[in-house]
Nucleic acid binder design. Structure first.
Lengths: 150, 150
DNA sequence: AAACTTATTGCGAATAACTCTGATTAAAAT
DNA sequence: ATTTTAATCAGAGTTATTCGCAATAAGTTT
């Protein structure tokens, strides 16, 4: 959980600035219920309802920035756009099992996998941001019907 | 390695058809060098050069279809488009370590991870298509510079 | 082998996620 | 306070991907 000051510190370290918009975005994710995630558009609408609107371009820019900082993680569920959630450490860190047809997502945890991720990154001299096992599959419902396009 | 007949079999099973275009696409991926992968556009251009052109929409349709069948896997390297490669079983199955800044990708293998994938899918009653550990990180080069946007 | 059904193709238009531009504002440093 | 320059906003622009529809052809039935 980042405080406003901690966020400022990591931003300033790279020559970036703490803006009210960035605080707002981080707070929105921190308040989010476990297992929930937001697309750029979702976040845009949420902030509008909250009466703390932020322009779409700013949202896109900061979602990318915060992912590249390791604060958020980018999820690839649906076919055509990304989702985001807080990137949390071990007890809350998790992976996803996704039905490629209906996009239903199930979370699961696995510390061994996280360890593999950490060690592979270290081995290659990379600075780890996030690691996630993505399992693409067909859920019980969607695997049944023999026919039906796509 | 799918033969043309094996491909026909799995397609027909679902009421789908074996078309020359589908054979061409599968063959293109089978001929691809280890570690290589193609975007829809890449494939389009490759097939054009090969004098076996296929329309872009057909390419998109079939990349999706073949991914949903478990023949191809969808990779999310670059920011703005997908890449595809053959979905191969155990000795060739692998995962990716990716630099989020320069998109450099390093492959690595891990049977334990595959096992977790298989067991989680089974546990939830899903039909497994593909599982991949994606490690987002900064490569040695990209992690250095303190300043520089996004 | 001819007829039939309907999945598939190709083309171009349409969509939608995302990025870019340029003027303005406001963090942080001096 | 002043200065520097990163960040915001709004809207235009870009581009990967999908859609619609007429024409074609795979697989099936007779």
């Amino acid at each position: 959980m980042y405080s406003s000051n901690a966020l400022k510190a990591v931003l300033n370290e790279k020559g970036w600035r703490l803006t009210p918009q960035r605080e707002t975005i981080l707070t929105a994710f921190q308040r989010l219920q476990k297992g929930k995630h937001l697309s750029a558009e979702d976040l845009y609408e949420l902030l509008e309802q909250q009466e703390t609107p932020i322009s779409l371009s700013t949202i896109y820019r900061n979602l990318k920035l915060m992912s590249h900082m390791g604060i958020l993680r980018e999820l690839e569920f649906a076919e055509d756009h990304k989702h985001y959630e807080l990137n949390q450490p071990s007890p809350n860190h998790h992976h996803h099992l996704i039905c490629v047809k209906c996009n239903q997502a199930i979370e699961f945890k696995s510390d061994p996998i996280q360890k593999v991720g950490k060690s592979k990154a270290k081995q290659a001299g990379f600075h780890l941001l996030d690691c996630q096992l993505t399992i693409h599959a067909l859920c019980p419902r969607c695997k049944k019907p023999a026919k039906s396009a796509s």
